[in-house]
């Protein structure tokens, strides 16, 4: 079944319905990771990037491939290794002997969806090569800025177990990611459904992405992002988002809290959340729903809390509990 590719001008209802269809389509491939799909979709609609943390083999690559297939967009994957160079990511200029001129060879970042696999395996210099493209959505090669195709989204992955020989992402880079998503193990029923889906009449252990349909075009995604950006946010809700971010700076158990970019990210993600819910305005619950993935990588847990075995989600939840809901 091939869906009709919609035109870029969209209403809120259309955008919301498309978001739901994309969710359903990806869920066919990535079984049992509803929250991950939902949060990835929120990041896509808000025009942000995501950092996915989870042990290997949970379908991080499959998620990106399925998303690329569903939005009929380009997909590229970079496996980060300690010897990866910045030019391997962004591209470089090569002298063409035959034509006696310099040719620009664009790197893998020139795509719609970029999977930066095990991003913490490369040194900080290489990681920083992603900074410009994530922030500016353009790459400068030899002084010339080259825009990347829109919509552009980076999905970086991290493995929480093997920390030996890794380079933790610098705070400046972490701040560029709109959401940090945890991907966990599926339940028994979901795993059974996954095994059935992957092993039914096929060779190999990969999900057949050909079974997925393209729901929208990249242009339609840009249109959906436009619709998201126009969703109303009451001043009380903005105030609530800012108070939550402020509270992380004062809250006990945190070495440092989130910066102003955290408040901005909260409102952006809450808008996308409202669109996924089919609403044209944001209410405080949207902020609360996205607060954990938005803030968990922007704060740092105090060493004593780490020793006690707590995680950032625990402290953030306590911050959310203590922050007063908006007054109307």
């Amino acid at each position: 079944m091939n869906a009709t590719l919609p035109t870029p001008s969209l209403s809120l209802d259309q955008a919301s319905r498309l978001a739901e269809q994309i969710h359903t389509e990806i869920a066919k491939a990535l079984i049992g990771q509803q929250t991950v799909i939902r949060e990835t979709l929120i990041a896509l609609l808000a025009g942000g990037h995501v950092l996915i943390e989870g042990v290997p083999g949970l379908g991080k690559t499959l998620l990106v491939r399925a998303l690329a297939k569903t939005i009929a967009g380009q997909f590229a994957r970079i496996q980060f290794t300690p010897d990866l160079m910045p030019a391997d990511i962004s591209g470089h200029v090569l002298f063409d002997m035959h034509n006696q001129r310099f040719d620009v060879r664009k790197g893998p970042v020139f795509t719609h969806l970029l999977l930066a696999d095990e991003i913490n395996r490369a040194p900080a210099k290489t990681q920083s090569a992603l900074l410009e493209v994530m922030q500016e959505q353009q790459v400068t090669i030899e002084g010339t800025a080259y825009p990347v195709p829109l919509p552009f989204m980076t999905l970086a992955t991290q493995n929480p177990l093997e920390q030996e020989g890794t380079y933790p992402l610098p705070e400046a880079q972490l701040d560029r990611f709109l959401l940090k998503i945890y991907i966990g193990y599926p339940s028994l029923e979901e795993e059974i459904a996954m095994v059935n889906a992957v092993t039914r009449q096929q060779v190999g252990d990969r999900f057949q992405l050909e079974l997925l349909n393209a729901i929208v075009t990249p242009e339609a995604i840009s249109a959906m992002q436009q619709v998201t950006a126009q969703i109303e946010v009451d001043q009380a809700v903005v105030d609530y988002a800012a108070r939550i971010t402020q509270a992380t700076r004062k809250g006990q158990g945190l070495r440092f809290g989130a910066g102003p970019r955290g408040s901005i990210a909260l409102v952006r993600a809450a808008r996308a959340h409202a669109l996924v819910e089919g609403r044209n305005f944001v209410h405080p619950d949207d902020i609360k729903q996205v607060a954990l993935p938005v803030l968990r990588h922007r704060v740092s847990l105090a060493p004593e809390m780490e020793l006690e075995g707590y995680n950032t989600d625990y402290v953030l939840n306590s911050v959310l509990e203590k922050t007063e809901a908006p007054r109307q």
């Binding site: 209410h283 405080p284 619950d285 609360k288 729903q289 959310l320 509990e321 203590k322 922050t323 007063e324 809901a325 908006p326």
Partner: peptide, 9 residues
């Protein structure tokens, strides 16, 4: 109900 609870909570 605490002051931190939203309408959804």
């Amino acid at each position: 109900i605490h002051t931190g609870h939203t309408e959804g909570d």
